[in-house]
Amino acid sequence: MSAATLRTPFPANWWARTLWTALALYVLYACGILDVSWDRFVRGLDNGAKFLDRMFPPDFSRQKLDLLQVGMIESMQIAVLSTAAGVVLSLPLGLLAARNLMPGWVSWGARGVIALCRSFHPVITAILFVKAVGFGALAGVLALIVASMGFISKLFAEAIEEMNLKQVEAVRATGAGFFNVLIMGVFPQVIARFIGFSVYQLDSNLRNSTMVGIVGGGGIGATLFTAYQRFDYDFVLTILLAIIAVIMVAEIVSAQLRKAFQ
């Protein structure tokens, strides 16, 4: 047999090996820093068994289900209102941020606002709004409006920048004013994607509305956090199951809607 047939078909890639080794070393180093050790993990598992034991069976008593319903409905209200307001506010903000429609200074200003909306986690915005407007669903709604504005207007602005300018020019050539250009030239091209982003954001707001309650923003998160602090772990499990079910349904509905509006 000649030497050529013995040559390995996949030569060793030393670059990749070095990188993988570096990654492994980093993992060890980070575990050291974070005090993540096998010992602690095993001790935790013991704890976890007790925790799971107290979670099962989930609590489906009448009174708890009523609490669950109230929280879940509030979460849905938060999601619906924050998406609606977010959509209404994102429409102008996205238009202002599109560089092919607006002069440079306007789009940079709008982009700054969008970046500011995106850079803070909804929970942090929720904390600030809880201080400003007090505990309850309103703080959650306001926090999620900010998050929705960041997400929808960024993608909307990108969609406008990617659109075909020929149609816009054609409408302009007829002597149409700015708003007519928007309605006849711009919107028909981007409105389907805008609706897609909005539906996606509704789904995403529903997920996040389960979280703002932890810092006082209302919704099912508040119910969950109260149950957790009272060590009412079997009710915690009920709430978690309900959240998973609702979000699964929401995901399917939003996927269908996006398909229908494409």
Binding site: D35, G44, N47, Y228, Y233
Partner: peptide
């Protein structure tokens, strides 16, 4: 609740 407070 399982592992106690901390980065783990």
């Amino acid at each position: 609740a399982v592992f106690g407070p901390g980065a783990l």
